[in-house]
Amino acid sequence: MSAILAEPKLRLEGVTKEFPAPRTGVRTMAVSDFSLEISAGDFICIVGPSGCGKSTVMNMIAGLDKPSSGRIAIDGVPVTGPGADRGVMFQDYALFPWLTVRENIGFGLRNGTPGRGLSSKDLEDRIDRHVELVRLNGSENKYPHQVSGGMRQRIALARLLANGPDVLLMDEPLGALDAQTRLVLQEELLRIWGETEIREKRKTAVFITHDIAEAVFLADSVVVMSSHPGRIRRVLPIDLPRPRNEQIRADPRFAELHEEIWSLIRDEAYRATV
């Protein structure tokens, strides 16, 4: 019994990923010996320089990419392919341009496994709730190209949450937004994740970013990666109290953590620019 309780939500064990170059066939190591355990209800941020394999790690957890070696398990069950238990929010949102805002949010419920067994009324109610959750009422019948970048991001978030996944996988979801919108949405994201709820009610989140302040603000722990090959440099617990708001950014501990992470990736970041 205790062994089952001890099983983490998500476990990566010695995961590596090699890509063969298209012409030469020379194998490049994108991710090397990546081991990590994430408990249910944890919010994990992965930071690191561009090209360190952050997105590859996420794709492997999502089941869209297979590891070259090592294993990935959810609740102790090995990942063999994509599934609605792990929702993904892509960097460019991957919204369906031919569907309206509302149809995009309801896509998984109508076409995938998450909507199975729901009556059409329950289904509509669930879509309604998620339209409201991200405050998109009034824009429901617009197409994605007719709304702002911030709204597109919220459509993607609502679509992710409407499917009710246990694990949220987010690949730089706020990257394309202006600084102000970004700060607002960071707080909104924490609210939606369940920051004010008890731990058992929170989702498990893996959030990729290159913004250190964002990672410190959001995460329970920050995974710092280095590149060539992509591997874990350090896992830092973020011991800031929750719920977090704007004031926490002025906390001396916030600055300390920020500096600690920055010092870990500074050298590589400089090397990448010169």
């Binding site: 089941g63 869209l64 392919g81 994509p82 993904v88 369906f96 896509f107 998984g108 076409n111 995938g112």
Partner: peptide, 22 residues
């Protein structure tokens, strides 16, 4: 766009339905 197909796959949509709906 490969991302759209991938997005549908992560929502548990079957291959046949991906062909029709994506």
């Amino acid at each position: 766009d490969r991302k759209l197909v991938q997005a549908a796959r992560t929502m548990g949509v079957s291959r046949l339905r991906i062909a029709a709906k994506v």
